[in-house]
Simulated scan of single mutants.
Amino acid sequence: MLLLPIPASLPAWTEAFCDLPVPVLAGTQRALDALAQAEAERGDVDAHRIAEAVAQDPLMTLRIFASAARLATPAAREDRRGMPETVTAALLLLGIGPFFRSLGELPLAEAAVDPARCGIAGAPEGLATVLRRARRSANFALGFAVHRMDGDAAALQTAALLHDFAELLLWCHRPELADTLARRQAADPTLRSASAQQALLGIELTALEQALMRAWGLPELLRRMTDERQARDPQVRCVSLAVRIARHSTAGWDNAALPDDWTALGELLQLSPEAAEALVRDIDR
């Protein structure tokens, strides 16, 4: 496998990823092909059905928001209220027919991490691990938002699903770097993700995500919800805790960091740590 140089700065990383296609999951491609056929034959496919088909695919979700942003006016992009903040709303802006016609043969994430292609034996499982975490994060965020009676519950669910999309893109486009990161953290469970990323990549992936979301014109609401620098914002805390708990419980419920998570979640939801843990386990079931 040809080892490419590592971009030297956040702008260089952003430019590099902006020039690469965003792949989707093979299951999403099959589901959309079936819906496109149903639309052509019966004309009975609406935005809600498409949104349900892509709900578990953070990469396709990313593509849909970026496509909608390209259609929006500059004024709409500057105004939070002018941009769609859910996948369903973005699909309504795109239009069902034009959306299906724009798909073509999408690049597949599974092909990108095929060991025969990328030379990394653990790449499929590495991608799958991040996907599982993203889906659990989305479920947790939705559950926390419902408990808080937050009117932006659907957007919070989407924000949590998208929170680690840069790590997914790293597995697809630079699997050798993603694999090195995964190995370093597996060897040292105390190594913080941000520290490992800064040491190897020269950036933190959360910073790359924010830069790409701005470059692709994603809604301001989603950018804010995933911006961990705004840690006092209850919606940011909701997403951040969902992601933290999904990460810390990847291998089970005995991670030493989880007691602090239960305390923090209890403070957010006005629950005892024990009740917060019980809520999370119930959501996960």
Rank of each mutant, 00 (worst) to 15 (best):
128 A>N: 13
257 A>H: 12
95 G>C: 07
9 S>W: 03
208 L>C: 02
200 L>T: 13
186 A>D: 10
191 L>E: 08
104 G>N: 07
93 L>C: 06
92 L>C: 14
257 A>I: 00
243 V>M: 06
141 A>R: 05
60 M>L: 14
77 R>D: 07
144 F>S: 08
243 V>A: 11
113 V>D: 04
153 A>F: 14
79 D>R: 15
124 P>R: 05
8 A>Q: 10
213 M>L: 15
81 R>E: 10
1 M>R: 07
66 A>Y: 02
146 V>F: 03
52 E>C: 12
146 V>S: 03
50 I>A: 05
266 G>E: 10
117 R>G: 05
247 R>S: 04
223 R>Q: 15
78 E>Y: 04
235 Q>G: 13
183 R>P: 00
64 I>A: 05
230 Q>G: 04
215 A>I: 01
219 P>E: 02
117 R>W: 04
18 C>E: 09
226 T>R: 06
252 G>H: 03
140 F>S: 02
75 A>G: 15
34 A>S: 11
176 E>M: 08
68 A>C: 13
72 A>N: 14
268 L>G: 06
231 A>D: 12
113 V>N: 02
109 A>I: 06
131 L>P: 12
251 A>R: 11
259 P>T: 08
94 L>C: 09
268 L>I: 06
74 P>M: 12
14 T>G: 00
178 A>K: 11
74 P>C: 11
227 D>P: 02
81 R>Y: 03
28 T>E: 02
104 G>W: 06
145 A>T: 10
164 D>K: 14
207 A>L: 14
